[in-house]
């Protein structure tokens, strides 16, 4: 019964939104209402996630589980940012520098680690698969894309070299278009599956 009820609600909302895309005038107020409710649900979901995360780390601290010191640091940073944001507001220059001067270096370091990890994974591909057509194509595309992106190879305008260079530069775009078409088709199919209740994102069966 619950499954049928949720499926019916999902189907009804999805059809209303879809109809509103084509017939905006009659369905405009309903769409506005649905979007407002959706935003409220997103906000409530965020609060629930926040509370769950905080409760998890508070339990870690109380029970002194492994890594409880990290939980304490996390909670302290969270409370400090929250209180500072309420008191100073995000428009405050001190608050902005306080957040960005921590967040930017941390996230940039993660990107550097990601670059090293991708390099290591590429080498692992060669190590495990050996020199196969797939691995050779992968390595060649990676090396040439990086070289082209660095701007190290330049040609004079109107020459044959420029045409060849443009061909290799456009080559990734061909794959990109294929990826775009695949993503669009996948999104369409997934949307229909959700709309027809074939899939249940919430895990309900």
């Amino acid at each position: 019964m619950k499954k049928i009820l949720f499926g019916a609600i999902t189907l009804m909302v999805g059809l209303v939104v879809l109809a509103g895309f084509f017939f905006q005038d009659p369905f405009g107020p309903a769409l506005t209402l649905i979007y407002q409710w959706g935003l409220v649900l997103v906000a409530v979901g965020g609060l629930i996630g926040l509370g769950t995360l905080a409760a998890f780390h508070i339990r870690n601290i109380i029970q002194q589980k492994k890594g409880w010191i990290s939980s304490a640091v996390l909670l302290a940073a969270f409370l400090f940012s929250l209180i500072a944001g309420f008191v100073l507001t995000p428009q405050n220059a001190f608050y902005r520098d306080l957040i960005l001067n921590v967040q930017v270096p941390v996230e940039t370091s993660l990107l550097a680690i990601l670059a090293a990890t991708l390099l290591y994974a590429s080498l692992q591909l060669i190590r495990t698969r050996g020199w196969t057509p797939l691995s050779i194509a992968f390595m060649a595309s990676a090396v040439f894309s990086m070289l082209f992106n660095l701007g190290l190879i330049q040609t004079a305008s109107g020459t044959l070299g420029e045409q060849v260079l443009m061909f290799f530069r456009r080559l990734p775009l061909v794959g990109a278009r294929g990826v775009l078409i695949g993503m669009a088709l996948g999104g369409l199919v997934m949307g229909l599956r959700f709309l027809l209740s074939t899939d249940h994102p919430g895990g309900e069966r």
Binding site: Q24, G28, P29, A30, L31, T32, L33, Y35, Q36
Partner: peptide, 9 residues
């Protein structure tokens, strides 16, 4: 779509 400025229920 400009729905935010439209009429609501």
């Amino acid at each position: 779509t400009g729905l935010a400025t439209g009429e609501t229920a």
